[in-house]
Design a binder for these strands. Sequence first.
DNA 1: ATCAACTTGACAGTATCCTGTCATAATGGT
DNA 2: ACCATTATGACAGGATACTGTCAAGTTGAT
Lengths: 155, 155
Amino acid sequence: MIERPHPHANDITQLILAVFRLNGALIEAGNRLGAPVGLTSARWQVLGVIEHGPAPVAHVARTMGLARQSVQQTADALERDGLIEYRPNPHHRRAKLMCLTPKGREALDYVQAQLAEWSERIGTGLDPEQLRAATELLHSISARVERDSHDEEAS
Amino acid sequence: MIERPHPHANDITQLILAVFRLNGALIEAGNRLGAPVGLTSARWQVLGVIEHGPAPVAHVARTMGLARQSVQQTADALERDGLIEYRPNPHHRRAKLMCLTPKGREALDYVQAQLAEWSERIGTGLDPEQLRAATELLHSISARVERDSHDEEAS
DNA sequence: ATCAACTTGACAGTATCCTGTCATAATGGT
DNA sequence: ACCATTATGACAGGATACTGTCAAGTTGAT
């Protein structure tokens, strides 16, 4: 009799705990990384989205998979700190464009340089195949979890 | 010439994004799961820790890897909702013990039953070997990230 | 026994995410 | 041209995490 793959609930639980833990560690690392230029994970991730061209808040939110309002808060903070500025949008009167200021550009450059070094430190010695396999597995689980949530809410 | 495993920064970035996405999906799923009995992910996870015996807030926080103060807020909310109650601790006058009330027990039972079904739905068809391999990889990355953060803060 | 160090809960403040709601701007079908 | 729908920013409020600080309880070294 051939056993169909059927993981114990425990295998999944362990993976979930590992995801929670890594998530926390990554956010903390991101905060440390941007701290010298006054950026947090949330803030430099927003800057990264408008790096190659201005965009309205709602567009950035969609790109990042966050609520419009969350990004709005972050963006307002970035404006207060002078890292971005809002400019009129020729195509939409309400949806002002978020633009990097020189100060924002400088801060983002710093973070990206730090991030490159960090990736190098973290990644050396890891097997690229395993990384890609794990990434694929996580995606497939995300898809299942999201679909399951969606199905339940429909029923 | 044998290539030493040396992942592109991109492989790591992709894994990080997958972790963020799955983390979000899991929290949302946990919230949905406990909603019928008024529990969120954060709350039933706390209940789970004191399931097999009362414990003070600080102990629960250590178990969960959270700050004492975060669990305190959750615990106070659980007490307001009548799911736990604080009892005097014979071994420590300040550190009151968090105890499940019957109402809390009932809610936790419900969540755990739901969780079992959920794990079943999510887990079927996944390869246990891959799950364990991914878990191990995530742990190893967590360890690297945490050690890296720790080293930087020391220097 | 005393005192320093640690632990604990409490309180204040902050960051980041969320939902809900509103008015205004843009869009598409009739 | 009109109107319903959708998109957007603004504002309010809540949940979950954090740090910092304080006073009180506990513990251990001397």
